[in-house]
Design a protein around this nucleic acid. Structure first.
Length: 189
DNA sequence: TGCCCGATTAACT
DNA sequence: GTTAATCGGGCAA
């Protein structure tokens, strides 16, 4: 029986929410899969968008938890975050990879590739596969088109340094499902 | 106003 | 291993 995650799930520290999201299922308009990789971004962290204060782009991060923060990366891709902690904390979890479980044919059409491992293994790829754009910025995570379900069984979570950042690159705030073939990059031992 | 760089990806050599 | 695609934030002037 699938248990839907409510907005209150996100009103905790990103360091609790991030590993708890591994194994949960994210569905957007009927398409999605199991979350196998995330990264935590805290407002005291130089690598976080919210580190230098509120701007028009990151305003959603400064709002209440349980909402989607979507931003454009490298002018090309979209990246999806879940806002966490009490309002004003400006902390969020970046969703980096999914194991596709629902709407796989739709994902293949949108992504233009057949290999299931290339559909959602990366923050930009997963947004293209789920058709997430700036239009989703600020939407509640417990209302359509979003739906998030708790994992049905306990999973083994591994941690490591985050990817693609230059500041605070040593912090082990990337979390993944141990042994998953759908990670954007493997975790080093 | 102009310049640099980034929570990326795919297509190169 | 390297590079282009391409946009907005942040900072210097």
């Amino acid at each position: 029986m699938l248990k839907r995650i409510r907005r209150s799930f996100f009103s905790r520290s990103v360091h609790e929410v991030a590993p708890d999201l591994i194994g949960a299922t994210l569905i957007v308009a009927g398409v999605g899969g199991r979350i196998v990789e995330v990264e935590a971004y805290h407002h005291t962290d130089p690598a976080a968008h919210s580190f230098r204060g509120e701007t028009a782009r990151n305003a959603v991060m400064f709002g209440p938890p349980g909402y989607a923060y979507v931003y454009r990366s490298y002018g090309i891709h979209w990246c999806l975050n879940f806002v966490c902690e009490p309002k004003g904390s400006a902390s969020a979890v970046l969703i980096r990879a999914l194991e596709p479980t629902a709407g796989i044919e739709a994902m293949r059409r949108r992504r233009g590739v057949a290999d299931q491992r290339l559909l959602c293994s990366g923050p930009g790829r997963l947004c293209e596969a789920l058709r997430i754009t700036g239009a989703h910025n600020g939407l509640a995570l417990d209302r359509p088109p979003f739906a998030i379900f708790a994992g049905e069984e306990a999973v083994e979570v591994v941690a490591g340094p985050r990817i693609g950042i230059s500041k605070a690159a040593d912090l082990p705030w990337r979390y993944g499902l141990k042994g998953s073939r759908f990670l954007s990059k493997p975790f080093v031992q």
